[in-house]
Amino acid sequence: MSDLLKFDYRTPCLSVALFAMLILWLRPMAVQKSPTYNFTVIIDITRSMNATDYPADTQAISRLEHVKNTLRQLIAQLPCESKIGLGLFTERRSTLLFEPLEVCHSFAEIDAAISHIDWRMAWAADSNIAKGLLSTLDMLQNSDSQIIFITDGQEAPPVNPNYRADFSTLKNKAKGLILGAGGLAAVPIPKFDEQGKANGFYTVDDVPHRSSFGQSNLDPSQIEGYNARNAPFGSAAVKGTEHLTALHEDYLKQLATESGLAYARLTDLAALQETLQTGSLAIEKPVATDVRWQPALLALAMLALIYWPRFFNLRRRS
C-alpha cells in the first residue's frame, strides 16, 4: 500500500503529456486520403422540367426547382477541394456557365448561379436529349471533371428511331451519371405567356406526337396515305400523350448504357449523396488534415488523470 502511495505517477504522466505536445509541433498535419468530387453538372432547362411532380411542404414544386434545391444542399455538404462546374441543356446541346470551381472558396458564387437558373434561359425550345448528351460528352471528353446530366428524358419532338444519336465514338470517354428527374406518372406541362405568367397547360393539340423528320422507320405499305416525297409518314393525324410528361427511366437507362455513364433517379438529397459515394465517382485525393487534436487529446487525458479528484479512494483503502 505504501508503495502505491509512494509511487509518483505524476511525473510520468506529465512527461507523456509533454512528449505528446512535442509530437504535436513536429507533426501537425497528416496527409490523409479523403474522397473529393469533381463534377460538371448539366441541367435540363426545357419546358418539361417545369412539370410539378415533386411533393414539397404545401404544394408540389417543379422538377427544375427540386433539382436546384437539391444541388444547393449538396454543394453545402461536399467536402472542401471538391469542384463543381455548371452547365445548361436545351435544344440539342449544352453550354457551360463556368468551369469547375472549388466548392468551399466559391460557395457563394456557385450557390447564386444555381439559384438563378431558370427555364427562360433556354436559347431554343426543342428538347433533343440524346443529341444534348452527345454534345455534352463531346464538350467534356478531355476534361477531368465528371458529368452529372440531369434530365427527365422527355424528347420533344419525339425522335425518329432511324436517326438516333450515335455514341460509339464517345462511349466511355467520360465518366459520370445521368440523373433522372421527375415522377413516373404522367403530368401536364405548364405553359407560360410572354410575361412569364402561368397560362394553363400544353394540350394534346399543342405538340407533335411523332417525329416527321426524314424517312419513316415503318414499312411504307403499312402507312396510311404514304407518299415517298410528300408524306413519308402518311396522312393520318397522330394523337398521343406527348403533351404529358413522366420520367422516361428506360430511355435514360438505355442512353446511359450507350454512352458509358451510370444512371440514377433523383429523389432526395440523402439518396443522391449515397449514389455519389457508392458510384465510384469520388476521387480519393490526398488532403492535408489537421491531426493536432490527437496528441492534444493524449496530453489532456494525462492532465485529467493527474487532477482527477480523489475524495475517497485512498482514505477508504487505508
Binding site: S106, A113, R120
Partner: peptide, 11 residues
C-alpha cells in the same frame, strides 16, 4: 436568352 453566370464578386 440571357444567362446569369456569376454574381458581382471579388472572387
Amino acid at each position: 436568352a440571357p444567362l446569369f453566370v456569376i454574381p458581382l464578386t471579388e472572387n
